[in-house]
Amino acid sequence: MGIKLYKEPDLENPVLLACWPGIGNVGLVAVDTLRRMLEAEELGEIEPWDFFYPRKVLIRNGELKDLIFPENKFYFKRTEGKDLIFFIAEEQPALEGKAYAEGAKAYQMANLVLDVAVKFGCRRIFTSGAAIAATHHTMRPRVWAVPNASSLIPELRGYDNTILMSDIEGRGGEGNITGLNGLLLGVARTRGIEAICIMGEIPIYLQGFPMLYPKASKSVLEVLTQILGVSIDMSDITGFAERSEKEIDRLYGELPSEAKEQLDKLKDISQDKISEERIITEEDKKRILDDVDRFFRKDIKEDEN
């Protein structure tokens, strides 16, 4: 079980950005877009066979040519003053039947990622994912920031469109970050490394969708570039988010009117201004989600046919 580095560049004050697939691939799309736009170079990889079952076998003329595993690669980019290391994984080392990393394998992988961070002198780690929120897909997704040390809070309060857990009604600053996004924060804390998880809001009714949500990825990317002090062309991700929103609008338009009425209430909730007559009860929420789930299951079946 190990790390394979292709090169060992001297990096100046690097920070590490890590991401994995998750709900709407919000973090993955954001961080990978940044990596691509900055044209980061390959740095190394975590050998996958101890963590993952292979994805694909290639057989040609009766001979097994290759077995392809999920990739877990490191990249680096030198920027003005603050160099970047990216860790981009195609899968989380999940236990059978689970979507997110947990258990010994997840802990081992978190430590391997941090080993690379420490080797190159990283003082700070970012992870990124989705925050399931009572918001509407027409609203601008906010970015939830969760640090692993209280000393980071004042800084995070200064970024645009960024909120802390305590800013979200009813949470009292508490919550849960599943999978490696959360685990890496915790392991970094025990190893004395600053870490922040940056999460883009995804509407509660889209959480179970088998589709990307680039609108939230764009919000994450805006915050990340602000924090890192790098500038990139946002037109690709903006176009992607617009196309995605049109598709969601189309599906939304086909929802039963009662479900739509209920979901429209989320526009008010996300503005933190809920009047007595517009509040969504637990019963409403369950009915809305059941309606949406039924609707989209039907849609997926039709696609398959």
Partner: peptide, 10 residues
């Protein structure tokens, strides 16, 4: 996913 037999061959 590939079969375990293919994995063993690899």
């Amino acid at each position: 996913r590939p079969t375990l037999s293919s994995y063993l061959l690899w």
